[in-house]
Design a protein around this nucleic acid. Sequence first.
DNA 1: ATATTCACTTGCATATTGCAAGTTATTTCT
DNA 2: AGAAATAACTTGCAATATGCAAGTGAATAT
Lengths: 147, 147
Amino acid sequence: MQVNIYFCAVKQKNIEHRSTCPISTALDIFGDKWSLLIVRDLMFNQKKTYGEFLQSEERIATNILADRLLLLEMGGIISKEEHPDSKAKVLYKLTTKGIDLIPTMVEIILWSEKHHEVHPFASRFARMVKKDKDGILKQIKQGLKSK
Amino acid sequence: MQVNIYFCAVKQKNIEHRSTCPISTALDIFGDKWSLLIVRDLMFNQKKTYGEFLQSEERIATNILADRLLLLEMGGIISKEEHPDSKAKVLYKLTTKGIDLIPTMVEIILWSEKHHEVHPFASRFARMVKKDKDGILKQIKQGLKSK
DNA sequence: ATATTCACTTGCATATTGCAAGTTATTTCT
DNA sequence: AGAAATAACTTGCAATATGCAAGTGAATAT
């Protein structure tokens, strides 16, 4: 929690970059056990609110979720918007930078599906991607852009 | 540090899987700030020993390095071998599972290069990948397999 | 007007990280 | 052959991050 020059309280997390290596820079933003699960929920599971993220089966703690949402926002991966249904709700969206993580996320899924026992949905998805990767990537991107 | 049924001390880290989601499963193995930097050094920088990993510019602590090497080994991503030059050295290698992370790593590099200021080497690499992704992926794979 | 939902925040115990200083087994130097 | 250096860790401890349970305040539903 920091204060800006207008003395208006502003939440901020400065992301330190350990080096100019692109892998290191990426990990500075999403190198933890939770951030990419939020991205996953936004990207593949049509989740958009704090409450929906909380319900994911990995059971993220409320304070950690709040912290990671802030970090992802500071990292330029997600943004907050007014929820059309209610002022009490907050709608989270992937930014362009967040949407650009689609290929990375898909490769992680392919790798994990190859080497671990995963949910049948994941295996089916992997099969589809192997048939037509570019098509699926575009489809996911379109689904996110329209919203 | 655990003890196996033969009462022979064995180092072990059990990797817990929070769900059967492939992203979550992957993060259970490499979801931290350091693991993929070790993979990077093995994959792109021809580093193979504890001492070489220590010298990377992100300055990993010695105990964390030892811990992550163990975790990566338990996760099936790296393996230890005798160093041909000396008994005092240990040679770390990517397993097949580790080599299979090439596409994920390359996508992270492409994403990071697009959205951050990174080292000129990374920009040059990104340009090459954009010209012939499949070719570069194969080339990297070949370079790792032969060793 | 009251209860419930929603998005957080707070306090505190526990776990992980980071730093500096060992330790032990080689290997190199003299 | 003995001493110094190298390599790969380990240990102790302070600082930081995580996880859990309970609380808060605004907005909405009853």
